[in-house]
Simulated assay, not measured.
Amino acid sequence: MTGRVISTETTALKTKAAQIRMDLLQMIYDAKTGHTGGSLSNTDILTALYYRVMKIDPANPKWGDRDRFIASKGHSVESLWCILADLGFFPKEELKTFSQFGTRLIGHPNNKVPGIEMNTGALGHGLAISVGMALAAKKDGRSYRVFCLMGDGEQAEGSVWEAAMAGAHYKLDNLIGIIDRNRLQISGSTEDVMGLDPLDEKWAAFGWHVVILDGNDIEALVEAFEAVPVAEGKPTLIMANTVKGKGVSFAENVPAWHHHVPNDEQLALALAELSAVLESHQRQEGQVR
């Protein structure tokens, strides 16, 4: 699918994102474990990719010309599990087994699950894997694209910059890096832990075309993704400025929600907030049809 997102599609995507946030919170609550804040912040990014932008086929997850997605920030897998289940890569009932003994749905992407390309989680490795996949597409004359989602705290890993240099050297304009720039990591502000700014200028200096946008604006995300390649012969870096804990008022921009499980009261409050958002989007969707 290509072209500008019209209002009906935008509203439908926002509705879907609200539902995915509700699903992941319930899953984390049931499992009593999970990376809540980062999964909430990256939900809009994944919703735009999986429901609008990427060429995928849940009935044929190994389709040779599928677009590839690598979750380099693998610890924020909860939103991804919920989306893959919703799309039919595996039964939705399996979400109830998240992080339980013997499950496939562990706390990081697991390539025993359809729709997962690589096991990830050790931060700093996803982009290097993505460079290899994008280079393989070029050499094989294939048209698929490779999307790699990184955390901003992950940018302190030296291997990220080695991969960035290689991506530009091989002119991989089929490679799209995305940084979930919520400015928080488990130990606090990214700028206090290891200063990153000016992060956009650093990526540009490494030979990437950089796009800065609101990473919780689904329409802006879709437009940016569908414009790729913006610069022929250059990989693209999407700097997605997001809010950690997005969608749950008391979790937004709170470092403690990096790895926090809602209690009964918090879950009820969060689901009520998101339910109101969901209903608002559904009303809008009905009005624009």
Rank of each mutant, 00 (worst) to 15 (best):
2 T>M: 14
5 V>L: 15
5 V>G: 06
6 I>K: 09
7 S>L: 13
7 S>A: 15
10 T>N: 04
16 K>S: 10
17 A>I: 07
19 Q>T: 07
21 R>S: 04
24 L>H: 02
25 L>I: 03
27 M>G: 12
27 M>N: 03
30 D>A: 14
31 A>Y: 05
35 H>V: 10
37 G>W: 01
37 G>Y: 02
38 G>E: 05
38 G>I: 01
39 S>G: 08
39 S>D: 04
41 S>T: 08
46 L>W: 01
49 L>W: 06
50 Y>V: 01
51 Y>C: 08
52 R>F: 10
54 M>S: 04
62 K>T: 15
63 W>M: 11
63 W>G: 09
65 D>F: 05
65 D>E: 11
65 D>K: 11
66 R>T: 14
66 R>N: 04
66 R>H: 02
67 D>Y: 03
70 I>D: 00
72 S>Y: 03
73 K>P: 00
76 S>L: 08
77 V>R: 02
79 S>Q: 07
81 W>P: 14
83 I>C: 13
86 D>P: 07
86 D>E: 12
87 L>N: 07
90 F>E: 00
91 P>D: 05
91 P>Q: 06
99 S>M: 13
100 Q>R: 12
105 L>N: 13
106 I>F: 02
108 H>W: 03
109 P>E: 09
113 V>D: 00
118 M>A: 12
120 T>H: 09
120 T>K: 08
121 G>R: 02
123 L>T: 12
124 G>K: 11
130 S>E: 03
132 G>R: 11
137 A>I: 02
137 A>W: 01
142 R>I: 07
145 R>S: 12
153 G>M: 10
153 G>F: 07
154 E>F: 06
155 Q>F: 07
157 E>G: 12
159 S>I: 14
160 V>K: 00
162 E>N: 13
162 E>K: 08
163 A>H: 06
164 A>L: 04
170 Y>V: 12
170 Y>R: 06
175 L>P: 00
175 L>Q: 03
176 I>G: 10
180 D>P: 01
183 R>A: 15
184 L>I: 15
184 L>V: 07
185 Q>A: 04
187 S>K: 14
187 S>D: 13
187 S>R: 15
188 G>R: 08
192 D>R: 09
194 M>P: 01
196 L>F: 15
200 D>T: 11
200 D>P: 00
201 E>W: 06
203 W>C: 07
204 A>V: 02
208 W>N: 00
208 W>C: 02
208 W>M: 05
210 V>Y: 06
215 G>H: 01
219 E>Q: 14
221 L>E: 01
222 V>F: 00
223 E>S: 15
224 A>E: 00
225 F>K: 08
225 F>I: 14
225 F>E: 00
228 V>R: 03
231 A>R: 11
233 G>H: 13
234 K>H: 13
234 K>R: 11
235 P>M: 00
237 L>C: 06
238 I>Y: 09
242 T>V: 12
245 G>V: 07
246 K>A: 09
247 G>M: 08
248 V>N: 04
250 F>K: 03
251 A>V: 10
252 E>L: 11
259 H>D: 12
264 D>G: 05
266 Q>T: 04
268 A>E: 06
270 A>F: 03
274 L>G: 04
275 S>G: 15
275 S>V: 13
278 L>C: 12
279 E>F: 11
281 H>I: 09
284 Q>W: 13
286 G>E: 04
289 R>N: 13
